[in-house]
Each structure stands twice: as structure tokens, then as C-alpha cells.
Amino acid sequence: MIEFKNTQIGYQQPLLFIDELNLNSGEIHVLIGANGKGKTTLLKSINGLQALVSGQIEIDHRLTSALNHKDLSNLVAFVSSKFEGIEHLKVYDFIALGRTPYTNLFGRLSSEDHIQIQHAINTLGIDYLSDKLTTEISDGERQLSAIARALAQETPIITLDEPTAFLDYANRVKVLSILKSLATNQHKCIVLSSHDIDICLEMNLPILYIDSSSNHLIKTNTASKSLLLQHCFGM
């Protein structure tokens, strides 16, 4: 689904090198690395918000450099680490904004749109939040709503920037297991960055780590905590 070839990610100077890497549908990948090593920049590059220093990324066999935001909105959804909530915006209406790429010129929701919104709500188990305001629910509930919005966008790829950073332990486990089941059950390709090394290892999530000395992104299915601490954080 996402193919990297000699990709250099960064701003003017490369931060992160990816020689060759394929991320497929039905897989979840957790991006682990020290602060400032390019996790967010990598996610921005996949979303077309940051140009590559060199090399290429292909999404669904199309170069990201040749895709505009309209094209990308049908391929990749993005969830940020914190959704603060917006005054007077109901959870249902917030999730409905995920349908923006599909609605007509005036943004009118069709019955198909309502079906997809409700499907996303049911998948996340947040039916009880639909009528609540995004400002009056908890951080955990807001994060689940944000994931539902990404799901309503019906993209094969969902990217998330530290989606568990502001959550308590129970909600961290909950969000990660929901993401894992989205990959398995709905064949999504999920890429998230996280600092929850312990939980991710415990859940056997495949890991992409940024080696702090070579600045290369390395894929591993058999990471151990000591290996990650040593290679990512030099501990």
C-alpha cells in the first residue's frame, strides 16, 4: 500500500532515511523513535504536507509527489495527537466532516454518508457520544471520535501522530487494540507513532524504529525492549 524507495525525509536537511520499505493493507505499524528524529515529519510526508528531500513514496502505486490533496484525501486519513474539541460542534457532526471528500458542492450528507458515519461510530463503540458536544467529552472519548472521523473518510490508509499521548493507561490499551482490529478486520494499513513501547510489545504490534545513530528506519517483528532502548535512545 505504501512503498518507500531511497526516501529521505526532512526539511532542507534529511532527518530520516528509508532505503526500501513496503507497508501493506491489513497491517499495523508502530513508529518508535526519539524526539526530533522525524516521526511526525514522516507522517506529514505520507500525508503530502511535507515534500521529500529526495527519493520517493508510492501510495497505491502512485507517487505522492504526483498526487494533490484531493487525491490523497481518498487514500490517507490523519489523526493528530490531540483533538481539543470545537465549540458547538457535536460528535456526530465532527465525524461527518470525514465525509468531506465524498459530499456534493454544498456538503450535503447522502444516505450513504450517514451509513458510513454510523458504521464508524459503531466500530468505535461510541454511539452514546453522537449527540454530545466535542467540548464536553473526555480526552479519551475525543480521541475515539477522531479515529471514527478518520474511519468515516473510508481511506485504505490511516496515519496517527502519537494518538495515545494524552490518554490514561486503560484508554491507551483500548485505542491500540481498536487500531489493531481495524487493520485485521477492515484491512486498513495503519501507521502510528507512539512512545508506548511496553504496551506495543505486549500486544505484539509490528514496529518500525528509527535508529538514532544511522537515522535509518528499520522494520522489525521481533523487537525487544532492550533492543529498542539501545537503538532508539542509546540507553
Binding site: 500525508n47 504536507l49 490533496h69 484531493k70 490523497l72 484525501s73 481518498n74 490517507v76 486519513a77 490523519f78 493528530s80 470545537i86 460542534l89 466532516l97 470525514g98 468531506t100 471528500p101 459530499t103 458542492l105 454544498f106 456538503g107 473518510q153
Partner: peptide, 17 residues
């Protein structure tokens, strides 16, 4: 339609096309 999306912020709107 774009104003409804813009409520989420400029980057989020961009990612919604």
C-alpha cells in the same frame, strides 16, 4: 462546505481535500 471543514483548522481541511 469548505467553511465547515475549515473549523477543524487549515491542515486538517487540506487533508480532507
Amino acid at each position: 462546505k469548505p467553511l465547515n471543514a475549515l473549523v477543524l483548522g487549515e491542515n486538517a481541511s487540506l487533508l480532507l481535500g
